[in-house]
Amino acid sequence: QTIHNGDQTYHYDNPEEAIKVAQKLAKIYNLTVTVKGNTVQVH
């Protein structure tokens, strides 16, 4: 599972963990989380 947060990319073995982290980032920075296959984008 990969999270793209602007210019930063994070890799997680656990998809659920990746989505949790993405949602935390989204709340902190007031962003949107988009899940596309194995990629979670925060923008």
Rank of each mutant, 00 (worst) to 15 (best):
D7V: 15
A22V: 02
T32P: 05
T39V: 11
V35I: 06
N38H: 05
H43M: 07
D13W: 06
T9E: 08
N5W: 14
T39P: 01
V40T: 01
T34R: 04
Q1R: 08
K27P: 01
P15G: 04
T9M: 11
K24Y: 15
A22T: 01
H43V: 06
Y12T: 03
Q8W: 15
N30M: 07
D13N: 13
I19N: 09
A26H: 06
P15A: 12
Q41K: 10
T2C: 15
N38Q: 04
Q8M: 14
V33P: 00
A26R: 15
Y12L: 07
L25D: 00
Y12F: 15
Q41S: 10
H11M: 09
G6C: 15
I19D: 04
V40C: 05
K36A: 08
P15T: 06
N14L: 04
V33Y: 01
A22S: 03
T34N: 03
D7C: 15
N30A: 06
I3P: 10
G37L: 04
L25Y: 03
Q23D: 06
D13G: 08
Q8A: 12
T2D: 12
E17H: 06
A22M: 03
V21H: 09
N5R: 13
H4F: 13
K20S: 08
V42G: 01
Q8C: 15
N5T: 11
A18D: 00
T9A: 05
V21M: 15
Y12N: 01
D13E: 08
Q8F: 14
Y10H: 03
T32W: 10
Q1G: 11
I3S: 11
I28T: 05
P15R: 07
K36T: 11
T34Q: 04
I19R: 14
V40Y: 01
Q1I: 13
I28M: 12
K24Q: 12
T32M: 10
V33F: 03
V42S: 01
N30H: 12
G6Y: 13
I28V: 08
Q41R: 13
Y12D: 00
T2I: 11
V21S: 06
Q23T: 10
V42A: 02
T2W: 13
K36D: 10
I3F: 09
L25Q: 00
K24S: 08
T39C: 14
N14V: 03
V40F: 02
N5Y: 13
D13A: 14
Y12Q: 01
A22N: 00
G37P: 00
N14H: 04
T2L: 13
G6N: 10
G6T: 10
A18R: 01
L31P: 00
I3D: 11
Q8N: 08
K36Q: 11
N30S: 07
D7E: 08
T34F: 07
N5K: 12
A26Q: 11
H43T: 06
D7N: 11
Y29R: 12
I28H: 08
V42I: 11
Q23F: 07
L31I: 09
P15E: 13
A22D: 00
I19F: 13
E16K: 07
T32S: 09
V42D: 00
Y29F: 10
V33G: 00
A22Q: 02
I28D: 08
K20W: 13
I28E: 11
N38E: 02
N14M: 03
A22H: 01
E16A: 10
I28P: 01
A18C: 11
L31S: 03
E17V: 11
N30E: 04
G37F: 04
H4G: 09
T34A: 03
T34K: 04
H4L: 10
G37I: 03
G6R: 13
T2A: 12
N30V: 03
Q8K: 14
P15N: 09
N14K: 04
Y12W: 03
G37N: 04
N38T: 07
E17D: 09
T39G: 02
V42K: 01
Q23H: 09
E17T: 14
Q1M: 13
V40M: 03
A18M: 02
A18H: 01
E16H: 07
H43K: 07
T32D: 05
T2H: 13
P15I: 08
L31K: 04
K36R: 12
D13L: 09
N14D: 08
D7P: 14
V33W: 01
T34H: 04
V35F: 02
T9V: 14
Q41C: 15
A26K: 13
T2F: 13
I19T: 07
G6W: 14
K24F: 15
A22C: 12
Q23S: 07
H43F: 12
Y29P: 14
D13C: 14
D13R: 14
